[in-house]
Design a protein around this nucleic acid. Structure first.
Lengths: 255, 255
DNA sequence: CGACGGCTTGAGGTAAGTCAATCCACGTGG
DNA sequence: CCACGTGGATTGACTTACCTCAAGCCGTCG
């Protein structure tokens, strides 16, 4: 057996490849490469589709810088990891990738992968989008826990849920039904029920929200958004701005 | 325009559907449904492929119970969210889904989706696997931040990295090169550099690890694994146990 | 009416954060 | 070969956000 590239090795944990598959993967991973020095960004938040990057050697990190300058690393990328398949489906990066040490990546031509995507059934693509945005929401939750305090976390969650309920047409103005107990909120935000309670009280006292009878009402959307340091980019609601006035109508004012 | 089901509404944020597509989605979402009462599990950790579940109404949560009994909710699922597409690719659930209120789901026959998957090119499937495990790792990081203390977090990270470096053949016995600064570790674990330092010292004092010259050596794998309350299930290294002795050789003893 | 689940509030404790000084390994230039 | 600068690691003293324990409250439902 030939010692192949790290991506192949990784994927083989899952599927057995034919020699042909393996040759193909190796070819992809070796034709074009590029190297970044330590502390350089391989991809930046906002970048659009270009080549796909596959880490071959070195160590990189998926991270985001928050408004206050703090950084949250959401994942370490080791050889065999793909940096940016999601850009295909999500249009633009919602976070950055930085090299921690000198890092070499294989560059996979956009259209090689594009073939896969465009040949997909419309529904399959939509499915991809769904998975990818789910991941993005997960990443945001990591930031919540790592770099936001109790008040910011709750505010962020409530604002996100407002957007999500609007998306599916289940928010009336700035209210939505959100039938969670404080204990469940605690389990979601990684705090204790007691502290959730105090934080809710604070948000209520500040006139940002009202939360009674399982219905959450956002009294001051702008203020809540700020309190949660919310930035809608990660939800990838691309069509809103342009094409579709109807969709835009649903969530547009929240972004 | 017909008011369609929540999945369609959600996906339309991203793609414009033809009337045909929309009809198809609606059909999928309405043929078979099932309702769960509040506090019932829709899916349990360990469940294998069955029907795919699409939330139609109610509120559910993606969660995991830790060994000490604490629960971490990783995501709220609202109408339009899919509970378990990943099972297709990952063989079994690595977490549970519970209904928080009475929740109705559409049941999508496994083979309807299976068609999509099996018709996929081997590489595309592998790509899916890659994305799905990435998500699983993200979820694990949420648990880290929400329900593990500093020592557990660092221990968990170091053990996970050992497994990942083994997977790509870049660990020598229980050592691997991990060229991160303490500040970067802090950004990844959501703590401060100072506290990372103290935690490292503790792990060193306990003879669990050695970390000098960018090389991390796990002195006592079993103990480190326990310290991080590590459970390999989320990495979905399915082939290891059975088929492939070579793959198993790489990571087998760690699981 | 009592019981129960969930919410609220207080008092006191602790893990982790902040600020700041010191140390150490290294690379570079005189 | 030593002086120096620099980035990172280490350690101490003090603060704080959040946790724990525990009691009381409130609405609803049998």
């Amino acid at each position: 057996m030939i010692m192949s590239n790290p991506l192949t090795m990784k994927l083989e944990q899952f599927t057995a490849f034919s020699d042909d598959d393996r040759r193909r993967l190796d070819a992809i991973a070796s034709t074009r490469t590029r190297t970044w020095g330590a502390r350089q960004d391989i991809l930046r938040e906002g970048d659009h589709v270009g080549d796909i990057h596959l880490v071959l050697s070195g160590l990189a990190a998926r991270y985001k810088i928050l408004p206050d300058g703090s950084r949250q690393i959401m994942a370490f990328l080791v050889p065999g990891d793909l940096c940016d398949i999601e850009v295909f489906v999500l249009d633009q990066m919602d976070h950055s990738i930085g090299a921690l040490t000198e890092t070499k990546c294989a560059l996979i031509a956009a259209d090689e992968v594009m073939d896969l995507i465009t040949n997909m059934h419309g529904l399959t693509r939509a499915l991809w989008w769904s998975t990818m945005t789910d991941s993005a929401v997960l990443r945001e939750r990591i930031i919540d826990h790592g770099r936001r305090d109790a008040r910011e976390r709750i505010a962020h969650l409530f604002y996100e849920m407002l957007v999500r309920y609007r998306m599916i047409g289940q928010a009336i103005d700035d209210s939505y039904e959100f039938p969670v107990t404080q204990e469940e909120l605690a389990d979601a935000t990684g705090m204790t029920p007691v502290h959730v309670n105090r934080t809710l009280k604070q948000l209520r006292d500040e006139q940002l929200i009202e939360f009674k009878g399982r219905v959450l009402t956002v009294l001051d959307p702008e203020a809540l958004k700020n309190a949660g340091r919310f930035n809608a980019a990660y939800l990838h609601l691309q069509r809103t701005e342009q094409e579709d006035p109807l969709v835009s109508e649903r969530v547009g004012d929240l972004l």
